[in-house]
Design a binder for these strands. Sequence first.
DNA 1: AATTCGTGGCA
DNA 2: TTGCCAAGAAT
Length: 364
Amino acid sequence: MSQHDPKFLPEPQSLRPENLSGRLLSWYDRNRRVMPWRALPGELADPYRIWLSEVMLQQTTVAAVIPYFQKFVERWPTVMDLAQAPLDDVLHAWAGLGYYARARNLHKCAQTVAAWRGGVFPDTEEALRKLPGVGEYTAAAIAAIAFGKPAVVVDGNVERVMARVFAVTEPLPRAKRQIKEHAATLTPRERPGDYAQAVMDLGATICTPRNPACGICPLMAACVGRQLGMAEALPAKEEKPERPTRRGIAFWATRKDGAVLLRRRPEVGLLGGMIEIPSTPWREDKWSLEDALPEAPFQAEWRLLPGLVRHTFTHFHLELVVAAGKIGPAALTRGLWVPLDKLGDHALPTVMRKVVKHALLKAY
DNA sequence: AATTCGTGGCA
DNA sequence: TTGCCAAGAAT
């Protein structure tokens, strides 16, 4: 086949892999999305705000992050402010956003940056990667977006876009290395931060997991996945194990003055360091009240409230039955007695707020 | 390398 | 109702 053959359609130069970034950037410029951490065109990004937003955005949607981000930067405008804040204040402000280890690492990272560099973030991937809570993705994202470094940024959006454009059929997570190689071939030296955000925006708005809008995609002509009719099916993923159900009894313990007993969870593990309604351990077998009594915070006439509190974590379902009881004058217990109207002052994760709501509805 | 980490929106 | 999914990190 020669170039003079009318059937030969030369691949436009703009569709060569090294030029796809140009198409993405021009699409990005035409469809710029406003987010509170993004610099305006021509402005320099604030590394503190980029870092804070990237940590919040780990496995979390933009819509969920925005109000938390606003709250954090209003209360702690610089990394020095955040470093000086009590950890409890940070956990409380984070409550509801999930993955609470992020909040602890955020605070630790702020203190590290404050101590080492007086509040100046490192600007290389290698140095960023050493900070607590900053992994491969986040280091690359900060380096690219805040410092203009041509880092290869690979998040879930990039994985999906690359898998489709290059028709990568190997399932994730095995395909990660292959996908990163593709991503590296597209990463430009000019405007790498905008490019990274362009791919992520594309994945969030057009190259979506379901019903991708291929008809208006700036990469449509280059997308091998689409040409093969398999774009929506990519990326392939390994099967996930099914989620078990765990059960427990939570103790809604009240005092004569109406205060409720709370306690702090262990620093590590599920809901680490957060405040909870005391409960039995969470196990697969159902609990009878008799089984649960030795786990109660004190001896009392516990009564089971009708109904259940259901909550789903990443890897299991939880069903909590709530038992209500009043502490006697002689009983001692460990924990934190909190008036009902002060429950909001504590770092209660969502599952525990559900327990509170249920108890308030059923116990009075 | 495989698990363990939350939560809310969506089909 | 159920499962999937989201700008992943730590161990």
